[in-house]
Design a protein around this nucleic acid. Structure first.
Length: 139
DNA sequence: GCCAACGTTGGC
DNA sequence: GCCAACGTTGGC
């Protein structure tokens, strides 16, 4: 089962916003990068990912689940980019900061560090479990 | 607020 | 099809 990481600036869409959106799921719009788009096209409902706060916070703060596969992004007038839909699953009891991720040698290859500008990223199974445990969840 | 990284655009 | 210019992202 693949795992993912979604970045958002909390000033535009925060974890609290995602939680507030409830079970219905909300479209992850605004992606305008082809690599990020490719990752979303690979996603299937039921797959999970980390929710990361960029700029402010700079930490993994929660777990989200894909509720709908890739489809059109209503915010893209060109129609070139689409979106999946996500719902919040649970918060991390302890947010895992970028600094904490960097401090772990086994996480040095995370896309979060290697390719810091990519807004939708794949996460390996090992990374998934390591970050979950760092955040206070069962692996 | 700065700037490095990097994607996109447009002239040729 | 190349590449310089430009815009954006996101860490610091």
């Amino acid at each position: 089962m693949p795992y993912w990481l979604f970045k958002s600036e909390p000033s535009s869409w925060s974890w609290d916003d995602q939680v507030g959106a409830g079970e219905a799921g909300t479209p992850w719009t605004g992606v305008r990068n082809h690599l990020a788009k490719n990752h979303m096209q690979a996603m299937k409902p039921g797959e999970r990912g980390f929710f990361y706060h960029s700029n402010e916070g700079k930490a993994v703060v929660g777990i989200v689940e894909v509720t709908k596969p890739y489809g059109p992004d209503a915010t893209d007038p060109t129609g070139r980019f689409g979106a999946v839909e996500l719902k919040a699953v649970e918060p991390l009891p302890e947010p895992v900061t970028l600094e904490a991720v960097k401090s772990q040698p086994e996480l040095a290859d995370m896309a979060l560090i290697r390719n810091s500008r990519l807004s939708v990223q794949p996460v390996t199974e090992a990374e998934w479990h390591a970050v979950r445990r760092m955040g206070g969840l069962a692996g």
